[in-house]
Simulated assay, not measured.
Amino acid sequence: MKGFVQFIGVTVGVILTALGLDMFLVPNKIAAGGVSGLATILYYLFHMPVGLVMLLLNIPLFIMGFYRLGLGFVIRSLYGTVALSVAVDILAPVLPVPTGNLLLASLYGGILSGLGLGLVFRYKGTTGGTELLAAIIRTYTSMSTGQLLFLVDAAVVIAAGIVFNSAELALYALISIFVTAWLIDLVLEGFSYDRAFIIISEHSDKIAGVILKNLDRGVTALQGRGLYTGAQRDVLLSVVSRSEVSRLKEIVYEVDHRAFIIMTEVNEVLGEGFKEIHTEKRNSRKLGKKSWRGK
């Protein structure tokens, strides 16, 4: 069942990515990096189908990937890569081109591509291309994958600007790349609605008690030691919803106006009071922390 859900997720992601390419990016000569961007350039130079070019460009990458990364990585990339190439060429003749406005095309092309690739990655698939190339190059260099992806995409964008003799098109391609990257992160990590608080105070017991009573949120005490003063004290950790942020601050400062508070966004919270953990096996471990939940 899990494999079927992943298959559906990758397929939906591939279709969304193909829509972004066929309806917005390719018709407007926006080569937004990667293999699809290079295929867009070759389409306008030699009138070769974009999907076919993407597939042909991935073949040497798969061969190199087999030798450098192993068969498992190649197999995981195979379906998404082939499906995207086929979808791009099948859908291109029947899809409309909604706009010739380059800004709208770069934005909506980036949105659809980002949503699509985000789904592909979320369901454990890949579409080969830039990601595969970066992973291969990574085996030869100490550069991070993010740096390599940026360099490869930048090279494609610069090439598009030269071939199309338009710096403007290159700039719009950059917009699309940034939008795509942002949407991928959004799909993978979700909106950040919850906030984690780290509270350092001489009155941690009282603060924890008020949080439990008034907010009905759990609090965990971590043992800490001030390196300047050498004083031992509990450091409180609590996660609350965005609507509870102001109230939590009020609670802390009503008890101790000198308390030190660190607040940070959290992308996902799993557990009691938040999103349930859906796993077949749940292993509990003793972490050596004093928990305030239910006390």
Rank of each mutant, 00 (worst) to 15 (best):
L55C: 09
I63T: 13
F274H: 09
V82I: 15
A231I: 13
L171I: 03
A170L: 01
F164W: 00
W182A: 13
G20C: 11
G118S: 05
D185T: 15
I158P: 00
T11H: 05
F260A: 08
S36R: 04
K281I: 12
K290L: 13
R233D: 03
V26H: 07
L248N: 04
A208Q: 02
S85E: 07
V219Y: 02
A39F: 09
S246C: 05
F7Y: 11
L91P: 09
G114V: 12
N214W: 04
G33M: 04
I177M: 01
G273F: 09
V266H: 01
I251W: 01
E189L: 15
G110L: 07
G3I: 10
L117I: 15
D89Y: 08
A92H: 14
K249G: 09
L237H: 07
E280L: 12
T127S: 13
L222E: 10
S85L: 10
F178C: 03
G13E: 08
D89M: 07
I199W: 02
R233C: 03
A167Y: 14
L237R: 03
I158Y: 00
T127P: 04
I175A: 00
S113C: 15
L55G: 08
L148N: 04
K275C: 06
A208T: 03
L248D: 06
A259Y: 03
P60E: 14
V53E: 02
L237C: 05
L222D: 08
T220I: 11
T220G: 01
F191N: 13
E254H: 07
T99Y: 01
L91W: 08
L78S: 11
L38I: 15
L21Q: 08
L21T: 12
L132H: 11
E168T: 13
S36F: 11
S106G: 01
R285G: 10
D185Q: 10
G230R: 01
G80H: 08
Y123D: 07
L186V: 08
V12A: 06
N267I: 08
L148M: 10
F4T: 13
V157I: 15
I200A: 12
T229L: 02
D205H: 06
L42H: 05
S246V: 11
I15F: 13
L52Y: 07
G226P: 02
L115E: 10
F73R: 15
G226R: 02
A87F: 12
L149S: 04
K289P: 06
L186T: 11
G226F: 02
F164P: 00
Y228S: 04
